[in-house]
């Protein structure tokens, strides 16, 4: 067994374990943390495939940003486990059906001939100076430029929509106007009053 194979089995085992823990562990915060572990091991598996750009971006985007926000929300919510467990039997048939469908779909896609040695030959190992990042960038901005730009536009629309949905002015909230604060002059805040010195009453 070569070192790459060893690394693959090591990271794949961790990933499968972490993914199993995500759906079985009770505590939602721990489940989210196991999901982080699954992402990191997935990135390591990609690294063995020489897809270093995708691996690092997976860590950067999903681990570094998405899961942080996810944890943020999960930690704030006080998830009541007993109430969650109440509906378990009720939803079991529907959930089981969906799970079964997903398994069938994955079997159809993954075990078909499209992944055998002829259709998917082993990728050629590249030299040390091969840059996966450059290759991906070139493809994205030339061959796939329209799908890429359309995807970007859809994401932009989604961002604007999300912000528009949550943005509301509440009358009781106090806002500060930084421009006004920066432009403030001494005269706006301080008033110097000139007055003659006064004498005490008994001295008069």
């Amino acid at each position: 067994m070569s070192f790459t194979q060893l690394a693959f089995y090591f990271f794949a085992a961790i990933m499968v374990f972490a993914a199993a823990m995500v759906i079985t562990i009770r505590n939602p915060v721990k489940a989210a943390l196991f999901l982080v572990l699954a992402f990191v091991s997935g990135a390591c598996v990609w690294m063995t495939l020489e897809a270093e750009f995708l691996a690092i971006v997976l860590v950067l985007v999903y681990v570094g940003a998405v899961m942080v926000l996810f944890l943020f929300v999960v930690m704030m919510l006080d998830v009541n486990l007993t109430r969650l467990r109440e509906g378990f039997g009720e939803y079991l048939p529907i959930g089981g059906l969906v799970a079964l469908l997903m398994v069938v779909e994955m079997v159809i896609v993954l075990s078909a001939d499209s992944f055998d040695q002829q259709n998917m030959p082993r990728p050629e190992p590249h030299g040390e100076d091969y840059s996966n990042t450059k290759e991906l960038g070139r493809l994205l901005y030339t061959f796939y430029v329209y799908p890429f730009e359309i995807a970007a536009l859809i994401l932009l629309v989604a961002i604007i929509a999300a912000i528009a949905l949550t943005l509301r002015k509440r009358p009781e909230t106090k806002y500060q106007n930084p421009a006004e604060q920066v432009a403030v002059q001494r005269e706006d805040r301080i008033r110097l009053v000139k007055m003659a010195a006064e004498r005490r009453k008994d001295e008069q």
């Binding site: 750009f53 690092i56 860590v59 950067l60 570094g64 840059s131 990042t133």
Partner: peptide, 15 residues
């Protein structure tokens, strides 16, 4: 080759 990305990814894990 992707040193800058590597650094960004690791510093984002520190949180």
């Amino acid at each position: 080759d992707a040193g800058l990305l590597y650094i960004l990814a690791l510093t984002s894990m520190g949180v």
